[in-house]
Each structure stands twice: as C-alpha cells, then as structure tokens.
Nucleic acid binder design. Sequence first.
DNA 1: CCAGCCTGTGTTATATAGTAACCGAACCAG
DNA 2: CTGGTTCGGTTACTATATAACACAGGCTGG
Lengths: 168, 168
Amino acid sequence: MTTGQGSAAEMPEGRAQALAAAEARCLRAGAQLTELRRQVLALVLEAEQPLGAYALLDKLKAQRPGAAPPTVYRALDFLLEHGLIHKVERLNAFVGCAEATHDHGRAHDHPHQFLICGDCGATVEISDTAVAHALADAAARVGFRVGNATVEVEGRCAACTAQVPERA
Amino acid sequence: MTTGQGSAAEMPEGRAQALAAAEARCLRAGAQLTELRRQVLALVLEAEQPLGAYALLDKLKAQRPGAAPPTVYRALDFLLEHGLIHKVERLNAFVGCAEATHDHGRAHDHPHQFLICGDCGATVEISDTAVAHALADAAARVGFRVGNATVEVEGRCAACTAQVPERA
DNA sequence: CCAGCCTGTGTTATATAGTAACCGAACCAG
DNA sequence: CTGGTTCGGTTACTATATAACACAGGCTGG
Ligand SMILES: [Zn+2]
Ligand SMILES: [Zn+2]
Ligand SMILES: [Zn+2]
Ligand SMILES: [Zn+2]
C-alpha cells in the first residue's frame, strides 16, 4: 500500500506465485483448475482493484471470444468455492484472496475483512482474528452459530488520508 | 415460511411505535416523511424478513398502482439516509433499523451487525460495540480511517439450532 | 465396443437489481 | 406572478445474475 493503490506495490511475480499456489491447492483438493478457470483467476489477480463479473467478462472475451455471462459466473463460483477469490458484496465485485497466495496456509473459509477506500477505491483484505472473535462472541450471546461472515468497511486509506490536507 | 422466525415475537404495535418514532425523528431533522416514504417504511417494518426492492414494489402497487422502480428506490434512499432502514448487502434487501424504533436513541449511522440464519432466513440486527472497536483497531493498525461498516454473518439462529437434532 | 453417466463448457434467453433523464405538480420566497 | 426547490410519475435503460438446454470429452461397467 502507500505507493499508489491497493496492491500496486506487489512484486509482479506475485501473480505467477498465486497461480502456482492455486494449482497446488486444487490438486490436493481433487478439483480441476481448468484453462478457463485459470484464465479468470489470472484476470482477477492482475487487477489492482475488485472487478465486476461483466468487467471480467469483457477482458475474458479477448482470450475467449465466445464467452458469455455463465462462462465467467461458473468460473467465479468455482474459485469462490475453493477459497481462491472473495466477493466484495458492497461492490458486487471479486478479488483474489490474499491468503491463497501462499500454498501453505489453508485459506479455505479463513476469516477476512475488507477495507475499502472510498476515495481511491483501493481494497485491501485483512484477516483480523480479534474481529472474528468479537463477532463470534456477540453471536453466541444470542445463541447464533456463526458460519461465513461478510465484513466490509468503507473509509479512507492511509495514502489518501495523507494526501489530502483537508478535513482536520 | 411457517409462522416466521426472528422477530415473530415482537409486539404487533411495534410497527406503529416505530412509525411514530420515525416521524418524530424526521421532524427534528427537518426531513419530510411523506406519504410515499411512510408507506414504504411501513412495508419494510411489517415484513418479518428483509425485503428486496422489487418485492416492496409489488406490495406498494396495491396502494399506489402507478409505482415503478424509481418510486421505491427513491423512498429507500431517503429512509437509508435518515437511518430508518438498513440494506443487507448479502441479500440485496432492506430491513427496518432496530434502533430507530426508539425515538430517544440517535440511530443515525450507529454501528450495527446482521445475523442471518441460512436455515429460516431470520435476520436480526445487533449493535455490538466490541465488534466495532475491534474493527476500528484493526483498521487503524494499517492507517485506515473507518467510515461505514458492513458486517453480515451467515449462520444458524438459536431456534433452528434447537429444532434440528442433527449435527451433534 | 457401446451405452450411460459425469464434468465442463457453449449458447440462448430471461430474471433480478438499480439508474438516468425528463416531466409536471405542489409549495414557498421574493 | 415569477422563479427556485422538493417530490413523485413515467419511460427507458444499464447492470448483475441465473435458468435451461445442448454438446463434447472422459470415464465405467456391460
Ligand atoms: Zn482471503
Ligand atoms: Zn485511498
Ligand atoms: Zn440499525
Ligand atoms: Zn433460523
């Protein structure tokens, strides 16, 4: 962060690493990371911001002219199921899972939260266990058993806060 | 949906009370709770579960035959701006704000979280400050200034957990 | 070998969610 | 009576997501 947007500062080979990790993970899970699914994952990963399904579709058409909405939605469903990407509900958009970059961690269903800068659009994924615990506690207090949690915070990122002198 | 879950136990006059509180709050804010907006608010409040905009539109048409999407979306925008309802992003649906029922509390922009039962659909709003604090802390750790937070947990409510013997 | 099944994808059509733009009525201030 | 402002009706459209059917390839059991 800081330099520019979101993950702009990541090393360029981060994508290749992420793809390799995804491959390894699918292998272990007995899931097929097909060409189409790999293409969609690559498109999601190379974007610096969350991309909508139709934006992905447009990009995908360059490689796969016949692509249609179901093409990309089915690939996204697969990637979501296997924890390789997340959906940002507030944006109806998709991002690569930050934890999935490393093969070692089991990124499936890991607790995660998004910080979305309303200024520059940068969206970063964090994995704060204190938040997850607070949430689980609050839920338990009313007898609710927690499954999957969507936590998305709109606000202003460090870079944009520093950049703008306004608003003391 | 059976007798419904979640807020089924609320007193029936809760709606009238909520409407009165809304009225009072708009008065103080200098906002006009018009007939249309009151109708939409009433529809949201009398539903036991979050309602989508088009579901609301269908119901609204009974009272207002000419209603169209902008009709309901404009009303929803007003109600959202004034903190009388919330949007559940995961469901693309709207619910009355639990805090707004009481005129005293300043329910505008209050921290809130939703617990959504995947079984019966019951959606309850809680306002846990520990969650809000944990979130603010985690964000501050990366220099992010928190604005509005979306926290929506899918899981199983107490009633459904009790009802189903399975899954020891 | 050939059915029969399963998975993945292509293809068409449709459902659901949300907005833009223009209009006129009602209200109020000058 | 103007001229702004707010509200809502109306039309048309964009954006997001899914249903349903079709087909091709890789298996598997006969
Ligand atoms: Zn993740
Ligand atoms: Zn920013
Ligand atoms: Zn609320
Ligand atoms: Zn339930």
